[in-house]
């Protein structure tokens, strides 16, 4: 049959984004152009580095107490950031604390994100009474202050690293459920979903092959922003005496222990405080950049 094949002037050109490879290249070049994104990226790299190799970098054993050297100011006796009330090296404790913060941030996001995403998908895609019930649970939980909820759960299930992660996740999954549900609701109405129904794609395949891949970007963005929330929440909870228990060096309980010396030895709380701030700022910078970079592309496609 004779259907003219039009010349495609565009076809000889290299494609704009032919695949995964150049997507990474695109992200990288966008990162190079954003100083906030780059700052966040470097802070995150530093955190990851410290949490992986911290034990070999730290100048002292973070748990080793030496009473003769207690409350040394910064830059004395090889203690770069000074020592605390038990004579432990603050820098080493902070490096060890970075590891705890990273573990808590990442683990909580994995648990809360997975659970919240499943709930959000079930709610948004299958609707019906299940959606009503699940979303009312989410509403109830969202009307409760996050920190208070985490404290209550922590008080019930007990303290310690595992339990603080669990309580943060129980407090945090609702955000994921909410966001994922609204994304699914929006996707359901997209014409390409209708088009695959019209093609005859089974319902379960529509969910896994068409809806899930389109959820990837919003979930990644939300996760990066939530990590900062979890790290701050953990610090707050630890500060209040729940969460990670002393003598384990979490930034939160370093703050808590140091607060009694706030007027005599400022360095006890200043450095962990600054560390929390920088981490939260860095993760937020990175998350904001990620959202700005990926979102317009989503719309543009």
């Amino acid at each position: 049959m004779t259907i003219e094949i039009p010349e495609q002037p565009g076809s000889s050109r290299p494609a704009v984004t032919p695949g995964k490879q150049s997507k990474l290249a695109f992200l990288w070049s966008s990162l190079l152009h954003s100083w906030t994104g780059m700052t966040g990226f470097i802070i995150i790299l530093l955190l990851l580095f410290l949490s992986l190799f911290g034990q070999w970098i730290a100048p002292f054993d973070p748990m080793h107490a030496e009473f003769s050297k207690k409350l040394l100011p910064p830059m004395t006796d090889g203690h770069l950031l000074g020592t605390d009330q038990l004579g432990r090296d603050i820098l080493s404790r902070m490096i060890a604390g970075a590891r705890i913060s990273v573990i808590i941030g990442v683990m909580t996001v994995l648990i809360a994100g997975t659970f919240g995403t499943v709930v959000g998908i079930v709610s948004g895609y299958f609707r019906g009474w299940l959606d009503v019930v699940l979303m009312r649970i989410v509403d109830v939980q969202l009307s409760f202050p996050f920190i208070l909820l985490v404290l209550v759960i922590n008080a019930i299930i007990g303290t310690g690293l595992k339990n603080i992660i669990l309580s943060l996740a129980i407090g945090g999954w609702v955000i994921f459920a909410r966001v994922v549900r609204s994304e699914v609701l929006a996707l359901r109405e997209k014409e390409f979903i209708t088009a695959s129904v019209a093609t005859g794609v089974p319902r379960i395949q529509i969910l896994f092959k068409h809806i899930l891949p389109n959820l990837f970007t919003p979930i990644i963005i939300l996760s990066s922003l939530q990590i900062a929330t979890y790290i701050i929440a953990e610090a707050s909870v630890s500060f209040l005496g729940f969460g990670v228990q002393p003598p384990n060096p979490a930034w939160g309980n370093m703050l808590s222990e140091g607060k009694d010396y706030i007027f005599s030895s400022w360095w006890l709380i200043t450095f962990p405080g600054v560390a929390i701030m920088i981490t939260a700022l860095g993760v937020n910078f990175f998350g904001d950049w990620l959202r700005d970079t990926l979102d317009p592309e989503l719309k543009g496609e």
Binding site: Q8, G300, E301
Partner: peptide, 16 residues
Amino acid sequence: EIVGLSDHHLDRYPHE
């Protein structure tokens, strides 16, 4: 081929 596109379009994405 019938609709006037060719082989090398196969691995492109719709926005291209």
